[in-house]
Every structure is written in C-alpha cells, then in structure tokens.
Amino acid sequence: MALRRWSAVRTGPTGDGILDLIERYYPGRAEVYVTSGMDGDHGKVSHHYGLHHRGSPTAAIDFGVGANARMGRDLAKWIEDEFGDLCVELIHTTPFADDDGFYVKNGRKIASYGAATDAAHADHVHLAMSAAQVAKALARLAGKTGGAAPGPARKRAPRKAATKAATPKKSLPAAAYHTVRAGDTLTAIAGRYKTTVPALVKLNPVITNPDLIQIDQRLRVK
C-alpha cells in the first residue's frame, strides 16, 4: 500500500527506502501521510536534503499528524521500538502524560531538542536515516516477519506484478531504455528492471545527482 503524500513532496533513493519501511511493515500505514521529503522550509543544511551519517548519505521524511495525536505517537513508538537504534534523527512531541516524546539526535536518544524544536514537532513525526541504516532496518524487519508485512494483506503486490508483466526483463533487448514519468524515482526504476541505483548511474553519465531525474528523460536500464 503506497503511502499518501502531499503533491509537492519529492524523495530520493534513501527517502524512498524510509517510505518502504513504513509501507511494508508498519501496521497502521493506512493512516500515515507524508508531508515533506526533499522540500519545505528546512534550510540548506538539513538531513532533508541529504547530509551524511558515518559516511552514508541520509534523508529525512516528515509524517503528518495534524490533530491525530494518537496516530503520531503510535508511529513514533513503533519506529523507536523496531529500529530506534538505526535512526539519525527521530523527533515527535505528544500531549500524553505517560510519555515524554520521542527524540533521537545523531543516533543517540536524548531527552529533548529544546522547547522550540519540540513544540514544532507536535504535528508531525520527523524521521532521518542513512542509506546504510535503512538497509539494516529493512533486513531486520524482513527477518522478524519472514519478509511479509504485518496486519491486513498488502495492496502493493498486484500493482508490482502488473508492472513486471508489462515489461518482463527477459524480453528486454541488449540495450533497453526507460522514459521517466511523473512520480518515477531511480529506486523505483531500478526495482522495475531488477537492477540497482549505482548500476543505473553508471549506465547514464548524465545523472549527476541520483535524487534528481527529469520527466521525459530517457535512461538506459540495461
């Protein structure tokens, strides 16, 4: 089940990995919506725009809560319980008396980010992770669930099956190309053609930033 997102939200490979964690394994994913990725008023130095943590590129995603405080706490608590040790940042403030909020900074759990920052994160859950951390978290949750998402049957499988049936890899010619469409990311394209983002970058020297590809751009995929 693909997460709902505001129309202006853009994500790159690492951000897509974070969303994949939630889409695949979070039981309450039907409630979740994405309000920010590589966009919004985050300043020029921010994990939203891809800093690094221990040598691995990072991304940050904001999940909207609005007036649904319970949904925000449930998501933040699930992240903390399942892979809190694999977060660069986790910020969410709740109004509930039985918790003090959820705060991780530079991979370490802290008591607070300060009154102003804490207050600004009452209406959304901010999660930043590195590419390496995302890979570890995906492997951990796949191991715990046997690769299957918990809760109701996932709705994403039929869509993936239809996509693969339309362009099976075995029918691709020696050199195959993909024309970028709205909503495409390198991660999604790599998955469709059973390859990797680094392989696509190597095949397409025109790509100078894996997080930025253009609609109607013709990319070689094999």
Rank of each mutant, 00 (worst) to 15 (best):
D81C: 00
H126N: 05
I91K: 07
D98I: 06
F83Y: 12
A128L: 10
K77G: 05
F96R: 11
A97D: 15
D99E: 13
A119S: 12
G114W: 07
K109T: 12
I79P: 04
P95F: 06
Y113L: 14
H92V: 01
W78Q: 06
T117P: 00
I110M: 11
E82V: 05
I110G: 09
H92G: 00
F102A: 03
T93P: 00
A120E: 11
V104E: 00
D123A: 13
W78R: 08
K77C: 01
C87Q: 02
K105M: 14
L127C: 14
D118S: 05
K105V: 11
K109M: 05
A111L: 13
A115E: 15
F96M: 05
D81I: 00
T117Y: 12
E80N: 07
A119E: 12
D81V: 03
D85K: 11
I110W: 10
Y103M: 06
L90N: 08
A128V: 11
A97R: 14
G114E: 11
L90T: 04
C87P: 02
D118V: 06
A128Y: 09
A76S: 08
A97V: 11
D85E: 14
N106T: 07
T94N: 12
L90C: 08
G101F: 07
D98A: 11
R108V: 11
W78K: 10
A111D: 15
T93R: 13
E89W: 10
Y113D: 09
C87I: 03
A76D: 01
L127R: 08
A115P: 08
H121L: 05
E82A: 10
L86W: 02
A116E: 15
D99A: 10
I91E: 03
V104K: 00
K77M: 12
V88F: 09
G114R: 04
L86N: 01
Y103P: 02
I91W: 09
E82P: 02
H92Y: 15
R108A: 14
W78E: 02
K105T: 08
A120L: 07
S112R: 13
D99V: 09
E89S: 14
W78Y: 15
G107Q: 06
D98K: 10
S112Y: 12
A111F: 08
G114C: 09
G107V: 04
A115G: 05
G107P: 05
V88W: 05
F102W: 13
D118C: 06
D100M: 13
H92P: 00
